[in-house]
Design a protein around this nucleic acid. Structure first.
Lengths: 217, 217
DNA sequence: GGCTGTCGTTCGTCAAGGCGAACGCATCGA
DNA sequence: TCGATGCGTTCGCCTTGACGAACGACAGCC
């Protein structure tokens, strides 16, 4: 159990409220707005989702997190405005990163073909930059280079929950994406898809080159 | 490389878990423990750091966030245990992702030359994956696709301190890296360099294609 | 000098979060 | 059938976060 139980202060309180004016603008880049009550509703949903994912009862989770189950009950009911310590304790008990509880869910498969996407042209040189994926808060993104030759399909076992793969084909031709719906890619094409579900990568031409950015929360 | 931490397994995914325990284990992946008072001390430091980075006074920040400046004062003093709404409001006002305030500070800068790095060969297919850069905790990495034609050199103004750019050339040929010491790249070559110092990108062949992952803290 | 603005801190008040106990409801076993 | 155990919710109490006003310190300006 754990964790800190902190009995101590574990919890303090958190009041709040709303006072805040809620500036509306979301701070997080890729994060859709979440102001005031939206935020707590989102947290409520996140806690419930993660708790059920792990398969814990409220009582058990509350015990592990060192908080009162009444507190947890109200939190999941969308009442309240938990303190960071409370939320942190829950994150620890659920074994999920803190930000998973405050950030909205996840994206899906997205393809940006070569030449598509928001492009920033250089005024001067012949240079075009395309933002393919803005980074969600607190994500880790490991960068891989893939060199593959035609042959057997490489099927990846699902990674940790919350993982997203970003793939940009540099050269050659490939079939990649979710196992049940792979996408054919040409040089410059970009695709992102959940890495926590079965997915494949298959080179269709010799000398196929790709970059995979593996993002995990 | 350095790097590699690999903690991946562990880190990356924290979740898996299950049930468990993992008490001491911090919820956030690369997050060193931070329980109880550590957490609020860390938040206090984060708020102050971000506030000073933006160049706001306490009064101004409090006004923008819609919270009492006394609240902010106490928070930065390390007293307290703010509610998520309060912290969220501060994140919005500071224009930083929420998790930036609750996760520990900094990573490091590292450079990896093309052709290096741990390679994972597929047992079966002709497939090689190279880990180019394991992600430091708390970094944001935005992914860009670059299409460039030979011409004028594109010189980038330095970005925020701590920024690192990762560049992998997909096709063509390019000269890229720090302005004072750019590197010539061929398809498959990877280079990363500080983005907070002057740097350039210059295509040497028509149809030059690259991926830039811009990492900022 | 005195006036005005801002800075960050401190203090008293109020409201709300968190707690524990008790409740109603299911399930299980004797 | 009855008790026991677990669940999630509801109810008062107490703590504490957040507020606003007032404070001393500092700088600019007439």
């Amino acid at each position: 159990m754990s964790v800190n139980n902190e009995g101590d202060a574990s919890t303090g309180g958190a009041p709040g409220a709303g006072a805040t004016a809620a500036p509306a603008t979301p701070a997080t880049p890729a994060t859709p707005a979440a102001s005031g009550s939206d935020l707590i509703a989102l947290i409520a949903a996140s806690i419930r989702r993660e708790r059920e994912r792990v398969g814990l009862s409220m009582a058990e989770l509350a015990r592990r997190a060192g908080i009162a189950k009444s507190t947890l009950s109200q939190l999941e009911a969308g009442a309240g405005n938990p303190s960071v310590e409370t939320l942190w304790a829950l994150g620890v008990a659920l074994d999920v990163p803190f930000s998973r509880l405050v950030d909205p869910p996840r994206p899906v498969v997205r393809v940006i073909r070569a030449g598509e996407g928001p492009v920033t042209h250089s005024e001067r040189a012949d240079y075009a930059a395309t933002l393919l994926a803005s980074c969600p808060p607190n994500a880790r993104r490991d960068i891989f280079r893939i060199e593959a030759q035609p042959g057997e399909t490489r099927a990846s076992d699902p990674h940790m929950p919350g993982t997203v793969e970003h793939l940009l084909l540099g050269a050659g031709r490939a079939l990649a994406g979710p196992t049940e719906a792979p996408v054919e890619l040409l040089p410059g094409d970009y695709v992102s898809y959940p890495g926590d579900a079965p997915h494949v990568f298959r080179a269709l031409e010799p000398g196929t080159l790709a970059v995979i950015v593996m993002e995990h929360i």
